[in-house]
Amino acid sequence: MRPAALRLEGVSKRYGRVLAVEDVSLAIAEGEFFTLLGPSGSGKTTLLRLIAGFEHPDTGRIELAGKDVTAVPPYARATNTVFQDYALFPHMTVAANVEYGLKVRQLPREERRRRVAEGLAMVRLAGLGYRRPSQLSGGQRQRVALARAIVNQPEVLLLDEPLGALDLKLRVEMQVELKRIQRELGITFIYVTHDQDEALTMSDRVAVLNGGRIEQLGSPVDLYERPANEFVAGFIGVSNVIERDGQRLVIRPERIRILRPEEAPDIGSQVEDGLVQDVIYAGMVTRYAVQLDRGGRLLVVQQNTESAAHASDLRGRRVRLAWRPEQVFNISAPQSDRPEPKGNA
């Protein structure tokens, strides 16, 4: 069996009284797009910095391609980082920035030139090598930072919220770009973000972090369809939790149907009555907030396959909601149900 590209064993890091990362263990396969997802302060960036070597763990082991690198300084690790603020050297041209890592490693000039050209072409910036970072747009700087990291052909590429500073349209564009580059290069990506959409669309697997611990680790489908607990259910997707018979249940909003007055539910469906409190038209979909008679509130999302001009008529009306029982997930307390936060790679 090939060794994992990266393995963490019982890694903890404490800043004063704050436990930033608590006993994290995971294994990431070679060529995997792995995302660390969590709110700010969840320890995801600290975890990335531990992997890069900018921080030293208090306990635990970090292995890169089967080698223990826990005590190896960042300049000797086979990782490269794309920083949140890009950290491009302002006194160097774009080409000199991209070349820097190759120059430090004393590669021959010809090879350096070739790799810089390849790197810039890969991020679609060919021909801009002579510019200074200050003469580039935010999206272009982001690409330079990416090129500067990938030309070194790292074992693992670390990305610290690289798209955080870009506007939405550019962000979606770059998500596609990143995924393409990752596929073409076959490099292992470890991607830090607080954006669940980004995590779900790009990743092979996602580790959801909260308070320095891994809450759940799995594929995007696992996380969305089978959230392990209320935190994951709420952080990924909309928190649609109701309490029935002492059990806390999650139902994803697009799995709920609003029945027409005379319509009978499908056989085996669960049905509850409620009052539509609010209707929000959002173009592609319409969202309904429904207060249930048995207590609790559910958000329902419906595709606007036909004109939704009459959707707002439902405001203040009584409706009947229906969903299939297999779409309901029980996230009540028993922590033993929680899947082991270990990689299955």
Partner: peptide, 15 residues
């Protein structure tokens, strides 16, 4: 000088 510049240089292999 932002600390990330120094980290970036170290990350790229510079002592």
């Amino acid at each position: 000088i932002p600390p990330s510049y120094l980290e970036a240089a170290a990350d790229l292999g510079a002592r």
